[in-house]
Amino acid sequence: MIDLKDVSKTFTLHNQGSAVIEVVNDVSLSVAPGECVALTGASGAGKSTLMRMIYGNYLTQAGSIRIGDVDIVQAEPRAVIALRREVLGYVSQFLRVVPRVPTLEVVAEPLRAVGVSAGAAEARAAALLEKLNIPQRLWSLSPTTFSGGEQQRVNIARGFAHAYPAMLLDEPTASLDATNREVVLSLIEEAKASGVAIIGIFHDEAARARVCDREIDVSAFTPGVAA
């Protein structure tokens, strides 16, 4: 489902003496439907960069990144947008939303974007928020005022609202208490069982061990860091 072939990325800092920083080099990996792969490696090894490249958020200089039959590296912006809307989900560590929009709508939005009716989308959103223990009295408020943990859970609810065939998870269990951590892990397991291909970054080793089928050490692709 997710296929990376000979992928490389450099940053050129034009305003800092045109310094060129190689971040990752010659990455090849593939994730099958129903499989969950963990990216590991020390901080700064390029785990998050690689995730962002797969999502099309960072530009890839060489190689190909195929999600289904779309190559993110070559795709037109609108193809990437369509892919993100329908196929590829991304749960980041930080919630980025328009101020003023109620939590329920924030969570329902990915479903509305793929054409689900407002009623059905909000029902699904409500179920997820309930599962993640967000009190109902907060649903009509904007999540911008919530605590860090609450924002993280809203973010996860939003990420899991639509059943994407492929998902990227960046520290989905960080800053969660035991109960909610358990809910998130079971959401991941359900997704795997339904055939979702997942790439994740988990610092929580127990969580990693429980949901991940394989680990890939990104340090191996990091120029200058590789052993």
């Binding site: 050129t12 034009h14 305003n15 962002r52 099309g56 958020n57 960072y58 530009l59 912006p77 990437v80």
Partner: peptide, 21 residues
């Protein structure tokens, strides 16, 4: 030119980098 978040988060041109930073 490109995807909005890509241009903002990973600008390629010197001027875009300056603008974003």
């Amino acid at each position: 030119s490109g995807l909005t978040d890509q241009v903002l988060d990973d600008p390629q041109h010197a001027y875009s980098q300056l603008l974003v930073s």
